[in-house]
């Protein structure tokens, strides 16, 4: 048996690049990375994770930019920053992949099989319905809580590449633990 493999959900990468304080998450990621380095484990990064992180970078930079006005110069400025940060992220990730500390993976299944499996798992689960209070005078409303198709696809990739653990901060993954398809994977939800 080769090197152990672990799958990082996008939330860990986002927490790491933003150095999130909430629940000491960035610190938890750092400890995890230190342990992985020590054990010589490999982190799996899927195309899906890469795209999600790049999209968060775009949204976060755009939405935290202090408002002045909105013209072409402003848009160009924001785009430049986004491009610069995107390039830095891809460069850092590429180095990790080149040094075989991170593996950049994508499913080897056909698109047809991939979606059929995702659909099968999605339709056989429902999650739960809860309520939340409306703001002000608004009445309470219902909220659907359950596993999403992206969650399933992350877990399927982790399974396909024999990840021992799937680390995430997203509690939505908890439901997947009970599925036979994911036997052998430990979902570590913090």
């Amino acid at each position: 048996m080769g090197t152990r493999r672990v799958y990082f959900d996008s939330s860990l990468w986002v927490s790491y690049i933003l150095q999130e304080n909430h629940k000491n998450r960035a610190q938890q990621v750092q400890q995890l990375i230190d342990q992985i380095k020590k054990d010589d484990d490999v982190i799996l990064v899927s195309h899906l994770v890469l795209l999600e992180v790049l999209e968060v970078i775009r949204k976060r930079i755009t939405e935290t930019e202090p408002y002045t006005d909105l013209d072409d110069d402003k848009k160009d400025k924001i785009k430049r920053i986004i491009q610069e940060k995107t390039n830095l992220f891809i460069s850092g990730l590429s180095r990790l992949v080149r040094e075989h500390r991170v593996a950049l993976v994508n499913s080897q299944e056909s698109v047809d099989t991939w979606f059929k499996t995702t659909y099968s798992i999605f339709t056989s689960s429902f999650g739960d319905i809860s309520t939340y209070s409306g703001r002000g005078n608004n009445p309470p409303r219902y909220r659907y809580l359950g596993v999403g198709h992206y969650d399933i696809q992350h877990a399927l990739t982790a399974k396909e590449f024999s990840a021992r653990d799937l680390y995430t901060f997203d509690r939505g993954f908890a439901e997947l633990q009970n599925y036979q398809e994911f036997n052998g994977i430990r979902f570590v939800i913090r």
């Binding site: 690049i17 909430h22 750092q30 997203d170």
Partner: peptide, 20 residues
């Protein structure tokens, strides 16, 4: 190199799960 790459766009309200 990746650690804190976007730290200037972070604050105490950041929630990685919500962002994802």
């Amino acid at each position: 190199a990746l650690k804190g790459l976007l730290i200037e766009y972070s604050d105490d309200t950041v929630d990685s799960v919500e962002l994802v």
